[in-house]
Design a protein around this nucleic acid. Structure first.
Lengths: 249, 249
DNA sequence: CGCAGATTTGAATGCAATCAACACTGGTGG
DNA sequence: CCACCAGTGTTGATTGCATTCAAATCTGCG
């Protein structure tokens, strides 16, 4: 580990937690002491698997992870996405058994933080503990939002909603330029998030594109008409629980 | 509050937590000190609402609660069920904003436990804190299981899976007699859990009944052929995270 | 060039929704 | 005691959204 690595880890985590709870300088310094080696993992590789009892959380520094489950008939359901700064698998600190896979959607930089290190950090800094728990619980809120979509919303609205969510999350991380951002997911991934078939995602995406709401090519998406997209999706970012509202309504 | 009330509260919570983590006698005594007045609330009433910032969790003593969301077009999605001993809304201790409704599916007995009381209890008894967090996180695992069902499983299997889950949870609470138990949900509720229409739930239920897997009348269900039902549902109770496996495979 | 992965489009199928009645239950009040 | 009613459950007929099957195009890459 270079000192540089350790800074990057602390900063990306600080940024993510800071979006949920105000965090002070002292806590920021404490985060630096977490630093372990940064590991590069390739697209498609598994951070942890269904049935594991992980002894560490994976701090995602660069790239995208997802939580997924492979069903009996070869189908896949994706439960959530992890963005840089997320501590994937944090909940196994208490749950122990992992009931799904954590898998890299892109090439990633990850740093493993042993549960013990987190425990003592959280004991010493209740503010960090609060932010970490909030982050874990917020994931639950996102899953509920997706579940409502899969259960009750038509495909077009569902897709639009997902695009809105990813856009807002990328934006608060400073990873958009104007209305354009890097979208790591292909249509198969989208389908497995939305509980749709690949073909249908493609059709709905085409519809959004032809309606002039989005552009989407080569892993890049740009939002051409945010108000219309947001209204179509009935997107309300409250469930994302940012402690100050995203700069976008 | 009668001393009896306080005992009931402590015991039902002790039972629920004890299914997740081993809990000692000292912690059990500590739970007794939580006791507040027991409130009776009627079927259909709201414990908390979407947009609230609850200052307390609701300890469910008797009856059933659900978490739900009403969508724009008058549709409903139910995200989870609460059984006696559950602390509904516990996660607002950290999340603060509630992004859904907590609502009574039946007449209920509830006791409100202020967040502050839980905070100090958890500080003093780390074992209880662990169990409470595990309980909150386990709910996330259940939601994921439901989400996989809605997204990727056919209706019949989905319904069968839900029945298996409720059966096992009632059983570990000692609320079954043989293979028979009280089922508080009507077919409309089932539909809103499963992301199906009422009519289709009815048809699938009829199918399960005519296949000799279940009986279901007048709010009572009995499992006539557990092995077949479990296999049809591909039900594996691991995600329920009981610290010892339910007495049923 | 050849190939694997991703995207796109068309056609046929099917699962579940919707629409529409009807039956059953328990509770209410005349 | 019975008519009435609301809530719940059941069944049939029709519709439609999304899936599946199939094939073509496009892209980046060795």
């Amino acid at each position: 580990m270079t000192p540089n690595d350790s800074l990057r880890q602390a900063d990306v985590l600080f940024q993510a937690l800071g979006l949920l709870e105000p965090i002070g300088a002292e806590e920021r310094r404490a985060l630096r002491r977490l630093g372990g080696p940064v590991v590069r993992i390739g697209e498609g590789s598994y951070v942890s698997r269904h049935g594991d009892y992980p002894a560490a959380s994976a701090l995602l520094i660069e790239g995208f992870l997802c939580r997924q489950r492979l069903l009996e008939e070869g189908q896949r359901q994706i439960f959530s996405l992890h963005y840089p700064g997320d501590l994937a698998g944090f909940e196994t600190l208490r749950l122990r058994l992992l009931d799904h896979d954590i898998r890299a959607l892109t090439d990633c930089h990850v740093s493993y933080i042993p549960h013990g290190a987190l425990e003592s950090l959280m004991r010493e800094y209740p503010g960090l503990a609060a932010a970490l728990w909030k982050s874990a619980l917020r994931e639950g809120a996102v899953v509920r939002e997706w579940m409502a979509g899969i259960g009750r919303r038509p495909a077009l609205q569902r897709l639009a909603h997902l695009i809105c969510e990813i856009f807002v999350r990328m934006r608060v991380l400073g990873r958009t330029s104007d209305d354009r951002f890097y979208l790591p997911l292909n249509q198969t991934d989208m389908a497995d998030i939305l509980g749709l078939s690949l073909v249908h995602v493609n059709r709905m995406a085409g519809l959004l594109r032809r309606s002039g709401l989005i552009e989407w090519r080569h892993q890049h998406m740009s939002i051409s008409d945010w108000p219309q997209l947001r209204d179509l999706a009935r997107f309300d970012p409250a469930y994302l629980q940012f402690h100050r509202p995203p700069l976008l309504t």
